[in-house]
Design a protein around this nucleic acid. Structure first.
Length: 111
DNA sequence: TTAGTGACAATAG
DNA sequence: CCTATTGCCACTA
């Protein structure tokens, strides 16, 4: 029972990413209450088959797309992100970093 | 049990 | 800005 809950929390966290925004793997793990489990999030997405999951909003911490450049998934992710109004340049999302953490909602974005 | 691998992250240079 | 190194967790051979 425990392992399934962590999976559910991670999936719920990914679903909670608003349209037009993105979040890093580590960020998703932290929000799900699982600090240090970024690679678990990655593994889940790599095995995921649910089309309703907004997997394209999950990026590396530096804003780069995690999939191999030029792969079908990479192209699909670029397309979906741009369809949400995000600017993707050389496999990287510009502006629109992973905001909406609790601290940033309280203190505002860091300068 | 150990070694290798992966849709990762943080740090140093 | 970049690459390289190290740490990390979960899985597999």
């Amino acid at each position: 029972m425990g392992a399934d809950d962590t999976v559910i929390r991670i999936l719920a966290t990914i679903r909670a990413i608003p349209r037009g925004e993105v979040a890093g793997y580590g960020e998703v793990a932290r929000r799900a209450g699982l600090p240090g489990r970024a690679r678990l999030v990655a593994r889940l997405l790599s095995h995921n088959d649910d089309p309703s999951l907004p997997w394209h909003r999950v990026l590396r911490s530096d804003g780069r797309i995690a999939l191999p450049e030029g792969s079908p998934g990479f192209l699909e992710q670029c397309q979906r992100l741009r369809a949400e109004g995000l600017r993707v340049e050389n496999g990287r999302v510009i502006g629109a970093k992973a905001r909406a953490t609790f601290d940033e909602q309280v203190w505002g974005p860091p300068d």
